[in-house]
Design a protein around this nucleic acid. Structure first.
Lengths: 299, 299
DNA sequence: CCCTTTATGCTCTATATGAGCATTACTAGA
DNA sequence: TCTAGTAATGCTCATATAGAGCATAAAGGG
């Protein structure tokens, strides 16, 4: 009655470089990018240890912060016939985009272009997705509410609902996986977003949503930054992840009021303009405030 | 090299009755309460469907809202020797505490008494846990920060950190599982909290934390209430889950400003005092506001 | 010395939150 | 009928926070 379970640990390994969030990818069997995944070894007493274990072995990367995301076990996520393929997805943050053999850093917003709202809706959204969604809605007006709810014209674009948006686009047949999953040829007039192996783009969407959510109440950004940074670097990193632009002075005020950082007294040899003070994360904040983070707005 | 994986779906089924949050439990092999769990059947295409399937079959309960929580796979969570026992934990909300054969509703705060701060710290906390924690801290002053961070003397008790608190108490050997997990006899001077089978209390703690967190930005409470309710019933239910008391007038203001409910024009035949208007959930709010919920404070 | 660029300090307003006072509409019982 | 008890409901006030913008400072390059 019961297929055996093949359990894998899949990792969305995130770094932010040059103001862009990136995920580590390997090349999947069909040539499409895939997130790395590895086995649950009997040697490791916990799932998280097993994850760190194979990431170290395979990619040579020592990840810092690790958090379990979600377990994916749909029957059709078949990589091994005769088995129920289950993956436990993890989010892992690393300080710098170290290159590793066979792996490449892929821009998050190549995978999910509509999530980058830093300079307003991205060109591909206005040009292709928006009209295609409008057409999809006109087929069934009840869909209008759902589109509005996640892409939010009036009420606002809620940064954390990354997965909801991906799933809506999937349902509206606006991502490559909508076709690939059913063995149908992918049309070539699709909005230009990079597809991934199997349900891996879903897993990345889950990761980005979780990361955005946690940013606001946990000091996760500092896992992605060097030890010392300027406030602009901090802001740029937050903006990169949140996908929205922030008001500089207000961001500074927020960070200082919440006592998330402390000045080092050092100045950064600036790239242009007045030199900025270098700051470092103040770990004690975790003990002082119940939910230390940067309350990113998301409208 | 690899043990076979035994995968189960475990459900924390929550209802709120008479102002108390309760979880559905069955009797475990050792007589201790356990949360119900069932198999991942090949007939079910998704994990969630499999979960609903066996809950319907076994408990005769049709659950409403269902959300995946976390996957537990520590090597020592052994129920079946020779297998890696993995459980995917789910949170499920039901409207009413329907009785079911072989199952019983257990008060959440019997399992986690320290989480009920509605009338201040509960007696058992001040009487036993607080002093025991103080002793534990005096063994190693570095622990003081950790205790303060989760039980929050100065900074505040953060409602969502349920799991952190349970894990701290586990480490401080203040819950029965600290002993049972190592096959040691449980001392009888432990603070009076009900233990569960294996890591089930951890799973319940995870569920309560998640539920508390989501309350603030998703209209989950209404999954636990009847179709029509008074604002006091709504408030009482929120307080029960959040474990804190709320200011009545401000709560009403919040609910009305956010347009979460609409009046029915009917009045409740009151149990005492002026009759209250009956309200119902306004589902459209999900489409109007990006994050509709009751921003519970948690200090 | 002027211009560009970024850092940093400060203000003003709208809104949200926390706390409390006051009044109203019922029930139960003297 | 009058009185007390219990909630419901309306309103105010102080404080905190978020959003937006003005102004000045400190660097480098022509």
């Amino acid at each position: 009655m019961s297929q055996p379970v093949a359990l894998n640990l899949a990792a969305v390994i995130v770094a932010v470089t040059e103001g862009q969030p990136r995920v580590l990818t390997v090349t999947g069997p069909d040539g499409r990018p895939a997130i790395p995944s590895g086995p649950l070894s009997d040697d490791d007493s916990t799932l998280e240890r097993a994850l760190r274990h194979w990431i170290r072995d395979q990619a040579g990367i020592e990840v810092g912060y690790v958090e379990q995301l979600y377990t994916f076990g749909d029957r059709d996520r078949g990589f091994t016939a005769g088995w129920r393929n289950v993956a436990v997805g993890y989010l892992a943050l690393v300080h710098e985009a170290a290159p590793s053999p066979g792996a490449a850093w892929l821009d998050c917003y190549e995978l999910l272009p509509w999530e980058d709202q830093r300079t307003g809706p991205p060109p591909s959204f206005d040009a292709s997705i928006q009209p295609a969604l409008a057409a999809w809605v006109s087929d069934d007006p009840d869909r209008a509410n759902r589109v509005a709810a996640v892409f939010g014209d009036a009420p606002g674009f809620d940064g954390i609902r990354v997965l909801d948006r991906y799933e809506l686009l999937y349902e509206a047949a606006l991502v490559a996986e909508s076709y690939a999953d059913h063995g149908v040829a992918v049309p070539d007039d699709l909005p230009g977003s990079t597809a991934m192996l199997g349900d891996h783009r879903r897993i990345v969407a889950t990761a980005l949503g979780r990361l955005r959510g946690k940013l606001t109440y946990r000091p996760l950004v500092f896992e992605l930054l060097p030890d010392e940074f300027t406030l602009l670097e901090l802001q740029t990193t937050v903006e990169a992840l949140a996908g929205v632009q922030l008001h500089k002075q207000n961001f500074r005020r927020l960070v200082e009021r919440n006592r998330l950082v402390e000045g080092t007294g050092q100045r950064a040899d600036s790239t242009g303009g007045r030199p900025a003070e270098l700051f470092r994360f103040r770990p004690d904040v975790i003990l002082e405030r119940p939910r230390p983070g940067l309350g990113v707005p998301y409208r």
